[in-house]
Simulated assay, not measured.
Amino acid sequence: MIKLLRSLVLAGLLGVLSAPAALAAEMGEDGLHKQDWFTITFRDMAEDIETATDEGKRLAVIFEQRGCIYCRAMHEKILSDPEVSDYIKANFMVVQYNMFGDEEVIDLDGDTLTEKSAARKWGYVFTPTIVFLPESVPEGKTVAEAAVATMPGAFGKWTFLNMFRWVQEKGYAGDEHFQKYHARIINDLREEGRLGND
């Protein structure tokens, strides 16, 4: 009986110790963490917007770079959370870009660029940076000009998830600024007992 209990405790302890590794995202050959639900495209921005819209989703482009500790934290702590990943998968088509990559990108204005020159053109300098695009293809605008919202840098679960919700709910087209929306949601979560008062 004692041997059985020791075996069960050991198995449980090993499960707990190995859990973070199970939650870790796969590492691609480009040195970027990968989610199996990210969409691989030809990086034609107009085509990607149309594809996302046809699927009843919004397009979000995420810039990352090799060795980015904030990107790693985002994948391992935020995108591994089912509440976050399930919401994003249901409502967004996410395409990953390498901040210093050489893959070809076609901007909304027709320019053909590399990922790294697109990041420079659009003014994105932090990783991760998530860019949210409109539901329809705008004429003559660049991605940076057409974006309905941009989330530069790494944030905690609720800021991250609430930005996706705010975009999905088209908060950018209304009068409630994201910060007000976020504060309201956080207050609701506290009242529901899902968050502490810290």
Rank of each mutant, 00 (worst) to 15 (best):
L10W: 12
Y172A: 07
V84T: 00
F92C: 03
E115P: 03
N197Q: 06
V84I: 02
S7Y: 12
F164K: 05
K34Y: 12
L195K: 00
F155M: 06
R194G: 10
V148F: 14
A147D: 02
G56H: 11
S136R: 03
V61R: 01
W166A: 01
F155D: 02
H177S: 13
D107V: 02
D81T: 00
D81E: 13
M27P: 03
H182P: 09
M45G: 05
F132L: 10
T112F: 10
G12F: 10
L8K: 02
P20W: 03
N197V: 00
V84A: 10
L14R: 03
F132W: 07
K3I: 01
M74L: 11
I2T: 10
G153S: 07
F155C: 04
I88E: 04
R194L: 15
E83K: 07
A21C: 07
A118M: 12
V61N: 04
D109P: 08
E104M: 15
S117E: 13
S18G: 11
A46Y: 08
A19W: 14
M74C: 05
E55K: 14
V137M: 05
V9N: 08
Y181G: 05
M99A: 10
D48L: 03
D36F: 14
M45H: 04
G174K: 14
I40T: 13
M163E: 04
E115N: 05
P134A: 04
K180R: 09
R72Y: 08
D36N: 13
V143E: 05
I40Y: 13
D175R: 05
L195I: 00
V167A: 09
F38Y: 15
M27K: 08
R120G: 11
A183L: 12
G56V: 07
E103P: 01
D111G: 08
G15R: 02
A118C: 12
A25Y: 05
F42M: 12
S7V: 09
D44C: 12
Q65S: 13
I186R: 09
G140A: 15
G28Q: 04
S7E: 04
R165K: 14
K57A: 06
E47H: 13
D109Y: 13
F42D: 14
G140W: 08
N187H: 13
T142R: 08
K170M: 10
E176W: 10
